[in-house]
Design a protein around this nucleic acid. Structure first.
Lengths: 117, 117
DNA sequence: GTTCCAGATCGACAGTCATCGATCTACATA
DNA sequence: TATGTAGATCGATGACTGTCGATCTGGAAC
Protein backbone atom coordinates (compact mmCIF):
# COMPACT_ATOMS: atom_id res chain seq x y z
CA UNK A 1 0.00 0.00 0.00
CA UNK A 2 1.49 3.29 -1.04
CA UNK A 3 0.90 6.55 0.68
CA UNK A 4 -0.75 9.22 -1.37
CA UNK A 5 0.31 12.58 -0.10
CA UNK A 6 -2.90 14.05 -1.43
CA UNK A 7 -4.69 11.76 0.98
CA UNK A 8 -2.34 12.58 3.80
CA UNK A 9 -3.75 13.14 7.26
CA UNK A 10 -6.03 16.12 7.53
CA UNK A 11 -5.32 18.65 10.15
CA UNK A 12 -8.83 18.56 11.43
CA UNK A 13 -10.33 15.13 11.79
CA UNK A 14 -13.28 13.63 13.67
CA UNK A 15 -12.47 12.52 17.17
CA UNK A 16 -11.51 8.86 17.46
CA UNK A 17 -10.63 8.51 13.82
CA UNK A 18 -7.01 7.62 13.09
CA UNK A 19 -4.99 10.25 11.28
CA UNK A 20 -4.01 7.85 8.52
CA UNK A 21 -4.74 4.45 7.10
CA UNK A 22 -2.73 1.84 8.99
CA UNK A 23 0.14 0.30 7.06
CA UNK A 24 -0.11 -3.45 6.64
CA UNK A 25 3.05 -5.40 7.33
CA UNK A 26 2.77 -9.19 7.10
CA UNK A 27 4.39 -11.38 9.73
CA UNK A 28 6.40 -13.24 7.12
CA UNK A 29 8.13 -10.03 6.09
CA UNK A 30 8.67 -9.15 9.71
CA UNK A 31 10.39 -12.48 10.35
CA UNK A 32 12.61 -12.06 7.34
CA UNK A 33 13.57 -8.55 8.36
CA UNK A 34 14.54 -9.84 11.79
CA UNK A 35 16.82 -12.46 10.27
CA UNK A 36 18.43 -9.83 8.05
CA UNK A 37 18.92 -7.61 11.08
CA UNK A 38 20.77 -10.44 12.78
CA UNK A 39 23.24 -10.65 9.93
CA UNK A 40 23.59 -6.89 9.67
CA UNK A 41 24.22 -6.64 13.39
CA UNK A 42 27.08 -9.11 13.12
CA UNK A 43 28.54 -6.96 10.34
CA UNK A 44 27.92 -3.76 12.25
CA UNK A 45 31.35 -3.53 13.79
CA UNK A 46 34.41 -2.19 11.98
CA UNK A 47 36.62 -5.05 13.14
CA UNK A 48 34.18 -7.71 12.05
CA UNK A 49 33.57 -6.01 8.71
CA UNK A 50 37.32 -5.96 8.11
CA UNK A 51 37.62 -9.60 9.11
CA UNK A 52 34.98 -10.52 6.57
CA UNK A 53 36.70 -8.39 3.97
CA UNK A 54 40.06 -10.05 4.54
CA UNK A 55 38.55 -13.52 4.47
CA UNK A 56 36.70 -12.74 1.27
CA UNK A 57 39.84 -11.54 -0.47
CA UNK A 58 41.53 -14.85 0.27
CA UNK A 59 40.52 -17.73 -1.91
CA UNK A 60 41.15 -20.35 0.73
CA UNK A 61 40.96 -20.40 4.48
CA UNK A 62 42.90 -18.03 6.66
CA UNK A 63 44.75 -18.96 9.82
CA UNK A 64 43.80 -17.02 12.94
CA UNK A 65 47.48 -16.29 13.48
CA UNK A 66 47.33 -14.20 10.32
CA UNK A 67 44.24 -12.29 11.40
CA UNK A 68 45.28 -11.24 14.89
CA UNK A 69 48.25 -9.04 13.81
CA UNK A 70 45.96 -7.10 11.46
CA UNK A 71 44.39 -5.31 14.39
CA UNK A 72 45.64 -3.46 17.39
CA UNK A 73 43.63 -5.87 19.51
CA UNK A 74 44.31 -8.77 21.80
CA UNK A 75 43.92 -12.35 20.65
CA UNK A 76 40.83 -12.96 22.84
CA UNK A 77 39.13 -9.94 21.30
CA UNK A 78 39.72 -11.12 17.75
CA UNK A 79 38.55 -14.57 18.76
CA UNK A 80 35.39 -13.00 20.19
CA UNK A 81 34.64 -11.22 16.92
CA UNK A 82 35.22 -14.39 14.93
CA UNK A 83 32.79 -16.18 17.17
CA UNK A 84 30.14 -13.55 16.60
CA UNK A 85 30.56 -13.89 12.86
CA UNK A 86 30.32 -17.65 13.15
CA UNK A 87 27.20 -17.46 15.32
CA UNK A 88 25.56 -15.36 12.61
CA UNK A 89 26.43 -17.91 9.96
CA UNK A 90 28.74 -15.51 8.13
CA UNK A 91 31.95 -17.46 8.52
CA UNK A 92 32.92 -21.04 9.21
CA UNK A 93 35.99 -22.48 10.87
CA UNK A 94 38.07 -25.59 10.74
CA UNK A 95 40.78 -26.79 13.06
CA UNK A 96 43.99 -28.37 11.83
CA UNK A 97 46.22 -29.38 14.66
CA UNK A 98 47.05 -26.29 16.66
CA UNK A 99 45.76 -23.88 14.08
CA UNK A 100 42.27 -22.71 13.24
CA UNK A 101 41.26 -21.59 9.77
CA UNK A 102 38.33 -19.34 8.99
CA UNK A 103 36.48 -18.84 5.75
CA UNK A 104 33.43 -16.96 4.52
CA UNK A 105 30.12 -18.77 4.16
CA UNK A 106 28.71 -16.76 1.27
CA UNK A 107 25.04 -17.57 1.76
CA UNK A 108 24.34 -15.11 4.57
CA UNK A 109 26.06 -12.24 2.78
CA UNK A 110 24.28 -13.02 -0.46
CA UNK A 111 20.95 -13.19 1.31
CA UNK A 112 21.46 -9.80 2.90
CA UNK A 113 22.75 -8.29 -0.30
CA UNK A 114 19.75 -9.54 -2.23
CA UNK A 115 17.44 -8.25 0.46
CA UNK A 116 18.91 -4.78 0.23
CA UNK A 117 18.26 -4.47 -3.49
CA UNK B 1 47.32 -12.71 -1.32
CA UNK B 2 45.78 -16.11 -0.92
CA UNK B 3 46.67 -18.56 1.75
CA UNK B 4 48.12 -21.81 0.55
CA UNK B 5 47.32 -24.50 3.03
CA UNK B 6 50.35 -26.43 1.86
CA UNK B 7 52.40 -23.51 3.10
CA UNK B 8 50.47 -23.30 6.33
CA UNK B 9 52.38 -22.75 9.57
CA UNK B 10 54.63 -25.58 10.45
CA UNK B 11 54.34 -27.04 13.83
CA UNK B 12 58.03 -26.67 14.51
CA UNK B 13 59.52 -23.33 13.56
CA UNK B 14 62.63 -21.35 14.50
CA UNK B 15 62.24 -19.17 17.55
CA UNK B 16 61.31 -15.56 16.81
CA UNK B 17 59.98 -16.33 13.37
CA UNK B 18 56.29 -15.61 12.82
CA UNK B 19 54.11 -18.64 12.25
CA UNK B 20 52.74 -17.30 8.98
CA UNK B 21 53.21 -14.60 6.40
CA UNK B 22 51.41 -11.45 7.52
CA UNK B 23 48.28 -10.60 5.56
CA UNK B 24 48.38 -7.23 3.84
CA UNK B 25 45.29 -5.06 4.25
CA UNK B 26 45.46 -1.58 2.70
CA UNK B 27 44.18 1.42 4.62
CA UNK B 28 41.78 2.32 1.84
CA UNK B 29 40.00 -0.98 2.21
CA UNK B 30 39.99 -0.55 5.94
CA UNK B 31 38.31 2.84 5.64
CA UNK B 32 35.69 1.49 3.28
CA UNK B 33 34.98 -1.44 5.57
CA UNK B 34 34.45 0.97 8.45
CA UNK B 35 31.91 2.96 6.45
CA UNK B 36 30.07 -0.21 5.51
CA UNK B 37 30.07 -1.26 9.17
CA UNK B 38 28.40 2.04 10.00
CA UNK B 39 25.55 1.33 7.62
CA UNK B 40 25.27 -2.29 8.74
CA UNK B 41 25.15 -1.22 12.35
CA UNK B 42 22.22 1.07 11.64
CA UNK B 43 20.45 -1.86 9.99
CA UNK B 44 21.41 -4.23 12.79
CA UNK B 45 18.23 -3.83 14.78
CA UNK B 46 14.98 -5.64 13.99
CA UNK B 47 12.89 -2.51 14.39
CA UNK B 48 15.08 -0.46 12.09
CA UNK B 49 15.26 -3.23 9.51
CA UNK B 50 11.46 -3.39 9.50
CA UNK B 51 11.20 0.36 9.22
CA UNK B 52 13.45 0.32 6.17
CA UNK B 53 11.44 -2.55 4.73
CA UNK B 54 8.15 -0.74 5.16
CA UNK B 55 9.53 2.47 3.71
CA UNK B 56 10.95 0.58 0.73
CA UNK B 57 7.64 -1.07 -0.03
CA UNK B 58 5.95 2.32 -0.26
CA UNK B 59 6.56 4.26 -3.39
CA UNK B 60 6.26 7.62 -1.76
CA UNK B 61 6.95 8.98 1.66
CA UNK B 62 5.39 7.54 4.77
CA UNK B 63 3.98 9.53 7.66
CA UNK B 64 5.40 8.78 11.09
CA UNK B 65 1.86 8.33 12.36
CA UNK B 66 1.65 5.29 10.11
CA UNK B 67 4.89 3.81 11.36
CA UNK B 68 4.38 4.04 15.10
CA UNK B 69 1.36 1.67 15.27
CA UNK B 70 3.36 -1.00 13.44
CA UNK B 71 5.37 -1.71 16.56
CA UNK B 72 4.61 -2.38 20.15
CA UNK B 73 6.82 0.56 21.02
CA UNK B 74 6.38 4.07 22.25
CA UNK B 75 6.47 7.02 19.90
CA UNK B 76 9.82 8.31 21.28
CA UNK B 77 11.40 4.93 20.66
CA UNK B 78 10.28 4.81 17.04
CA UNK B 79 11.46 8.38 16.61
CA UNK B 80 14.82 7.34 18.03
CA UNK B 81 15.19 4.54 15.50
CA UNK B 82 14.23 6.82 12.64
CA UNK B 83 16.90 9.24 13.78
CA UNK B 84 19.52 6.52 13.79
CA UNK B 85 18.59 5.54 10.25
CA UNK B 86 18.76 9.17 9.18
CA UNK B 87 22.16 9.68 10.83
CA UNK B 88 23.47 6.73 8.82
CA UNK B 89 22.15 8.24 5.59
CA UNK B 90 19.71 5.40 5.03
CA UNK B 91 16.51 7.44 5.18
CA UNK B 92 15.54 11.04 4.71
CA UNK B 93 12.69 13.04 6.17
CA UNK B 94 10.50 15.93 5.30
CA UNK B 95 8.10 17.91 7.41
CA UNK B 96 4.70 19.05 6.21
CA UNK B 97 2.87 20.99 8.81
CA UNK B 98 2.43 18.80 11.83
CA UNK B 99 3.41 15.63 10.04
CA UNK B 100 6.78 14.19 9.18
CA UNK B 101 7.33 11.91 6.22
CA UNK B 102 10.19 9.48 5.86
CA UNK B 103 11.61 7.84 2.76
CA UNK B 104 14.52 5.59 1.84
CA UNK B 105 17.69 7.11 0.43
CA UNK B 106 18.74 4.19 -1.75
CA UNK B 107 22.43 5.03 -2.09
CA UNK B 108 23.59 3.70 1.26
CA UNK B 109 21.73 0.42 0.84
CA UNK B 110 23.00 -0.01 -2.70
CA UNK B 111 26.54 0.69 -1.58
CA UNK B 112 26.36 -1.94 1.15
CA UNK B 113 24.67 -4.43 -1.12
CA UNK B 114 27.36 -3.99 -3.76
CA UNK B 115 30.05 -4.34 -1.14
CA UNK B 116 28.64 -7.63 0.05
CA UNK B 117 28.79 -9.24 -3.40
C1' DG C 1 54.48 -38.66 31.23
C1' DT C 2 56.02 -33.15 30.63
C1' DT C 3 56.36 -28.92 28.17
C1' DC C 4 54.99 -25.65 24.79
C1' DC C 5 51.92 -23.28 21.87
C1' DA C 6 47.38 -21.67 19.22
C1' DG C 7 43.18 -20.58 20.08
C1' DA C 8 38.85 -20.56 22.94
C1' DT C 9 36.61 -19.33 27.12
C1' DC C 10 35.97 -16.85 31.46
C1' DG C 11 35.23 -12.66 34.50
C1' DA C 12 35.33 -7.99 34.97
C1' DC C 13 34.90 -3.39 33.49
C1' DA C 14 33.59 0.60 30.76
C1' DG C 15 31.00 2.35 27.13
C1' DT C 16 26.99 2.06 24.18
C1' DC C 17 22.17 1.30 23.18
C1' DA C 18 17.05 0.34 23.38
C1' DT C 19 13.38 1.75 25.89
C1' DC C 20 10.37 4.57 28.48
C1' DG C 21 7.75 8.72 30.62
C1' DA C 22 8.04 13.49 30.66
C1' DT C 23 8.78 17.51 28.31
C1' DC C 24 9.62 20.59 24.48
C1' DT C 25 8.82 22.53 19.74
C1' DA C 26 6.20 23.79 15.84
C1' DC C 27 2.23 24.24 13.63
C1' DA C 28 -2.91 24.50 12.88
C1' DT C 29 -7.29 25.89 14.26
C1' DA C 30 -10.43 28.56 16.67
C1' DT D 1 -4.45 35.17 21.86
C1' DA D 2 -5.19 30.13 23.69
C1' DT D 3 -5.70 25.22 22.80
C1' DG D 4 -4.69 20.89 20.76
C1' DT D 5 -1.70 17.78 18.28
C1' DA D 6 2.51 15.35 15.74
C1' DG D 7 6.84 14.50 16.39
C1' DA D 8 11.53 15.47 18.46
C1' DT D 9 14.32 15.72 22.49
C1' DC D 10 15.64 14.96 27.28
C1' DG D 11 16.98 12.02 31.41
C1' DA D 12 17.02 7.80 33.55
C1' DT D 13 17.48 2.89 33.57
C1' DG D 14 18.49 -1.74 32.41
C1' DA D 15 20.59 -4.62 28.98
C1' DC D 16 24.03 -5.48 25.85
C1' DT D 17 28.78 -5.27 23.88
C1' DG D 18 33.81 -4.47 23.03
C1' DT D 19 37.87 -4.98 25.37
C1' DC D 20 41.26 -6.90 28.30
C1' DG D 21 44.14 -10.15 31.38
C1' DA D 22 43.86 -14.61 33.15
C1' DT D 23 42.82 -19.15 32.48
C1' DC D 24 41.40 -23.33 30.11
C1' DT D 25 41.66 -26.81 26.21
C1' DG D 26 43.74 -29.84 23.34
C1' DG D 27 47.15 -30.98 20.09
C1' DA D 28 52.35 -31.49 19.06
C1' DA D 29 56.94 -32.47 20.25
C1' DC D 30 60.08 -34.16 23.41
Amino acid sequence: MTVDLELAPKTKRPAGEPCCEPVVYPDIQRAQAERMAEVAKALGDPVRMQLVDVLRKHAGKVCVCELVPLFDLSQPTVSHHLKRLRDAGIVGSERRGLWAYYYVEPEALEELSAWLI
